[in-house]
């Protein structure tokens, strides 16, 4: 089914909001989902999967400790919380550290849903940095590269046969060009291709699977309050 940008934004926002998570900024998280959907990377389906299976509790957040920092290296342990709920916080944290450094190399450990940080990494590029993020997802190596002023990154893919940890993201942010690694990858989606997909969706409409749309609506419905005779008196006009 075709939906409008505003319908999609409102439903994603409301679905996340309905879970009453005390994590991050829902406006920013919503943007992460929408941007992924607009570039054809299944933002809606994936956020629906996440929200349907979510088991975050306060204890997990409390377990998160200040990251370890050594020279230009830093590591975060997100205690199995999805990157979608922490990406905007991590990016702000790293931008502060970059005030006095030319580059930072970091590992984000113990997280999931790696691609959802897609939109937040772009903030580094908007602020003049080169970014390279890599991870393993479904036995596939994925690499995200973006340069300053690029509207979208380029994504590289290859099969993975190693036993590397699959819950980590390796991230390099640098004021200088980062060596490209595309030779090791077997396929890619270019910045231009991603931007074209986005433009097409914005002008022609956004196609969403009816099933995913309904699942998202069901999540939103959890945050709604059943009507009573009394509450109907306050119903808006």
């Amino acid at each position: 089914m075709k939906v409008t940008y505003n319908e999609l934004t409102m439903l994603v926002y409301n679905a996340i909001h309905s879970l009453k998570l005390e994590l991050g900024d829902i406006d920013r998280i919503t943007l992460m989902v929408i941007e992924l959907e607009l570039v054809g990377l299944n933002g809606v389906k994936n956020i629906t999967d996440i929200l349907e299976n979510l088991t975050i509790n306060d204890n997990l957040v409390e377990k998160i400790k200040s990251p370890k920092f050594h020279k230009n290296k830093i590591s975060f342990n997100l205690q199995s919380i999805s990157i979608i709920f922490y990406a905007n916080i991590l990016v702000y944290y790293l931008r502060e550290k970059l005030l006095h450094k030319d580059y930072i190399s970091c590992v984000i450990e113990n997280t999931s849903d790696f691609l959802f940080a897609y939109n937040e990494y772009k903030i580094f590029a908007e602020n003049g940095f080169f970014v390279k993020a890599s991870w393993i997802d479904n036995n596939q190596n994925v690499c995200y590269e973006i340069s300053p002023e690029d509207p979208q990154p380029t994504l590289y893919f290859s099969d993975n046969n190693s036993n590397k940890n699959t819950s980590n993201i390796e991230l390099i942010i640098s004021k200088n060009i980062i060596a490209k690694t595309k030779d090791n990858f077997t396929s890619y989606i270019s910045c231009d291709a991603l931007q074209k997909i986005k433009k097409d969706k914005l002008s022609k409409g956004i196609d969403i699977s009816s099933n995913d749309w309904q699942r998202l609506k069901n999540i939103y419905a959890k945050g709604l309050v059943e009507d009573t005779e009394e509450s109907r008196k306050g119903a808006g006009a």
Binding site: E22, R28, I64, I89, Y93, R95
Partner: peptide
């Protein structure tokens, strides 16, 4: 640092922003 604070207290990110 505000960034350090928000890292450990993510629920305040929206209002700080």
């Amino acid at each position: 640092s505000l960034a350090e604070f928000l890292f450990l207290n993510p629920k305040y990110h929206y209002i700080a922003n």
